[in-house]
Simulated assay, not measured.
Amino acid sequence: MQTTKIALVTGGNRGIGAAIAHGLAEHGMTVVIGARDPLAGEEAARRIGGRSVPLDVTDDVSVRDAAARIEEWYGKLDVLVNNAGVSGGLDGQQVGEVDLAVVRAVYETNLFGVFRVTETFLPLLRTAGAARIVNVSSGTGSLAWQSDPAHKYATSRIAVAYPSSKAALNMLTVMYAKGLAADGISVNAIAPGACATDFAAGLGLSLERTAEQGAAIAVRLATVPESPTGSFLEDAGTVPW
Rank of each mutant, 00 (worst) to 15 (best):
T3Y: 12
L8E: 00
G11L: 03
G12T: 12
N13T: 05
I16F: 10
A21Q: 11
A25S: 15
T30D: 14
V32I: 14
V32L: 00
E43T: 15
R51I: 03
V53M: 00
P54M: 01
D56R: 00
V61R: 12
A66N: 01
A66M: 04
A67W: 00
A68R: 06
R69D: 05
I70T: 00
D78W: 07
G89H: 10
G89V: 09
L90H: 14
V102N: 04
T109N: 08
F112N: 07
V114R: 00
R116L: 15
T120E: 13
L122G: 00
L124R: 04
R126V: 05
A128K: 01
G129T: 14
A130W: 13
R132H: 13
S137R: 01
G141A: 02
A144L: 10
W145D: 02
H151T: 02
S156M: 13
S156G: 04
A161F: 01
K166M: 09
K166S: 03
L169I: 08
N170R: 09
N170H: 13
V174T: 10
A177N: 01
L180N: 04
I185T: 05
A191E: 05
P192R: 06
A194N: 05
A201S: 06
A201Q: 10
G202F: 10
S206L: 03
T210D: 08
A211Y: 01
Q213I: 06
A216H: 08
V219G: 01
V219F: 06
L221E: 02
P225W: 15
E226I: 13
S227F: 11
P228A: 08
G230W: 02
A236E: 15
V239S: 12
W241S: 11
